[in-house]
Write a protein that binds this DNA or RNA. Structure first.
Length: 271
DNA sequence: CTTGTAACCTGTCTGC
DNA sequence: TGCAGACAGGTTACAA
């Protein structure tokens, strides 16, 4: 469940293996994931030195000394395996460094993808062009959120999942942030008060920082690149806790399916 | 333009 | 044990 904290954790793990290292092997194992691998990925990346790793929203960024940036998205089930014993059928891209370290991008559902852009033009990469602010950045405040939401007829939950409003949130952390700030997921986005937006922005930052500190959330098929599991799942207040007691008021945590996606919330303390 | 739904693909879990 | 059905982190094409 790669949302922002899991991608941040992943990038930190990759950094220790890749940064400053030369790629001696870059091998796609099939033609495509959600979209085709760039046809020249192997040729442009092999022999390149990795200068820097970064993250934008849920995307991982790998900059090389050739002016290229490899962008990866983990989709729903993607993860990087570090020094795997063997390459399995879901390992769709394999990298090796001059030190003999090996990385495999494993993605059973294949909703992830890899792109290659010129570093100087990375912000023009279409998914980034209209993307909203990073929630952990200084420019993301309750005031800005209030402005972004004004006039929106959709629910606050749908608005927070819209990457043009704020970039990097997914189903888990939206559910968690709404619970922390006591706001109903069904509340009309444009009707939130300035005060509620302040509380919501603060809750978003707090939950993301806690999750990053815990190494991300551990889900069925997610692990950090080094194989360690993230611990944040133990700290979920409502997500995945249908039928349990609300940690704030003791009422029963509810789940409702909307658009093929589950929302977890407390009907008593989220208004 | 905005908003909601279906589809992409595979694995896992639940209930009969 | 088998098997059908529900469900899972995201994104986007398309319909309304």
């Amino acid at each position: 469940m790669p949302e922002l904290p899991e991608v941040e954790t992943t990038v930190a793990g990759l950094r220790s293996v890749l940064e400053g290292r030369t790629l001696t092997l870059v091998e796609p194992r099939r033609a495509d994931l959600r979209v085709p691998f760039p046809p020249d990925l192997r040729q442009r990346m092999t022999g390149a030195r990795v200068e820097r790793l970064g993250r934008r929203a849920k995307y991982g960024l790998v900059e090389t000394d050739r002016g290229d940036m490899m962008i990866f998205h983990l989709g729903m089930s993607g993860r990087w395996r570090v020094d795997p014993d063997e390459i399995g059928k879901h390992d769709h891209l394999v990298l090796e460094t001059g030190e003999g370290r090996r990385l495999a991008l494993c993605d059973p559902r294949r909703f992830g993808f890899v792109e290659l852009v010129r570093t100087e033009a990375w912000e023009a990469y279409p998914p980034f062009a209209k993307m909203g602010p990073e929630p952990l950045g200084d420019i993301f405040t309750g005031k800005l959120l209030h402005k972004m939401l004004s006039g929106k007829a959709t629910s606050i939950k749908a608005a927070l999942l819209d990457q043009r409003v704020v970039a990097g949130l997914g189903n888990i952390y939206v559910c968690e942030a709404l619970h922390i700030s006591g706001i109903s997921p069904r509340k009309q986005a444009g009707k939130l008060t300035a005060r509620q937006c302040d509380a919501l922005a603060a809750a978003i930052k707090a939950v993301l920082l806690s999750a990053i500190a815990a190494g991300g959330s551990s889900l069925r098929d997610y692990a950090r690149p080094d194989g360690e599991l993230g611990y944040f799942a133990k700290e979920w207040r409502v997500y995945g806790r249908e039928g349990e007691d609300c940690p704030a008021c003791g009422a029963t945590v509810l789940r409702r399916a909307e658009g093929g996606r589950s929302t977890f919330y407390c009907g008593v303390c989220q208004k």
